[in-house]
Design a protein around this nucleic acid. Structure first.
Lengths: 234, 234
DNA sequence: CGCTGCGTTGAGCTTCTTCAACGATCGTGG
DNA sequence: CCACGATCGTTGAAGAAGCTCAACGCAGCG
């Protein structure tokens, strides 16, 4: 119980909450375990609560009737998911499955709503989280519609670089097949583009390790969003 | 001032707020007028506040370096926009311009945050709004990535039909050029698809008026999301 | 009247997907 | 321990979807 409290304490969602509230939450929720590829919920399911990732990673994705997959988001430790459906009082708009062995902390709907009314800072944290997510989706829609795959990959690599300490050597945080799905394309296309970028000496690929050789070329492809110091993704 | 209060009262955002709070807000904000095509804010601008549409309509959109446009959202009377950037403490992720002669009620950032802390129901309303918007974006990402243009158009027509009293005769709420931009394509392509659907006797087009002749065909194209039971995937 | 924005159509081309095949890796059950 | 299946990644060839470019009709409006 105390461990759970510590866990919750490290989540942005609960920042600024009093000890008592955290213990409350810890006692209300429960831990769930998922094997890789195990589904957490399906599109259309009615949400009875939401999850916070403890460890592992959970992908949120849509499927086309033909079975193609578009990843909307990949959540890691400390991040909540499924909350939006709770507040919108709607069904889950997408599927969620574990990408690795994962554990989540599950919080039932009603209990959480009760807490929300008691603790204003919880609502404020939630507003910030949803807003950031909304802005991330806005970027994604723009990318999907306005950029070609090389541009989306370039953007992704730059974001990754940013997350990984700005090193010119980055490591993909998921299999290339999944990355394809996140970028709105298929593994074959992604593979060809990796090959092309390598041929053009923009990057160098060794398995999941990517050396960034020509950062400017990436920025160019990505549409200069990193050019003017208005980087603020995630 | 009293008129403004009445206006605010009709917004979902302020549902459940006491009179006093509404008058407060009314006194804090100001009315802004926009001519068609006039810009409200640009991508990258720092948000000093947000707007609520009084009348007219405002489109939120992204531009590619080559100048192609992707509409993210069109907001009508009573709807707030630009709030997400306020809470995410980030710059506007997209542009906003008026599509018709429009007026908005502008609320400065700080004043609103103050109100937010006072009135819990305001935060809850906001959570509901952001959540719905998030789910809408999720749908949009899926559509853009997983459906071809005819499928997206079909989905749009079904949504429109739903909004317009389920009549089989619907009226487009924006020029076809703008619709193309909302559906993630260009006017030429949209025009061809309208023509094709008409040839196939699925719809009949007279200017902005669309007769829906074969609803089932639309549902089929749209991926069955409107079919009673929900989509089944294995 | 001429301008401007909207809508449509045609021709050619680019990008991406589909389909197929194949090599590599890895975990597991026989 | 090895063989097998599953997943992952790559490559080639062909085809489809949609974009670009260009031209033109049409309506509204100063």
């Amino acid at each position: 119980m105390a461990q759970i409290k510590d866990l919750l304490q490290r989540c942005f969602l609960f920042k600024g909450l009093p000890e008592k509230a955290l213990l409350d939450i810890a006692s209300i929720g429960s831990i769930k375990k998922f094997k890789p590829r195990q589904t957490v919920f399906l599109e259309g399911d009615p949400p009875s609560g939401f999850h916070i990732v403890i460890d592992g990673s959970i992908k949120i994705f849509k499927l086309s009737p033909e079975g193609r997959e578009q990843i909307l988001h990949v959540f890691g430790p400390g991040e909540p998911f499924g909350e939006a459906a709770v507040f919108a009082q709607a069904r889950f708009p997408a599927n969620a499955t574990a990408m690795k062995p994962s554990r989540t902390f599950y919080i039932p709907r009603d209990a959480f709503v009760r807490l929300l009314n008691q603790d204003p800072s919880l609502a404020m944290n939630l507003l910030a989280i949803l807003s950031k997510r909304l802005m991330n989706f806005a970027r994604m829609i723009g990318d999907l519609s306005l950029k070609e795959v090389p541009g989306r990959l370039a953007t992704y690599l730059l974001i990754l670089m940013n997350r990984q300490d700005n090193s010119t050597s980055v490591t993909l945080d998921m299999p290339k097949t999944q990355l394809a799905s996140l970028l709105g394309t298929i593994p074959e296309t992604l593979s060809r583009i990796f090959a092309k970028m390598q041929a053009e000496k923009i990057i160098s690929v060794q398995g999941p390790k990517i050396e960034i050789l020509d950062q400017d070329a990436l920025k160019e492809l990505s549409g200069n969003i990193f050019q003017e110091g208005r980087l603020e993704i995630k």
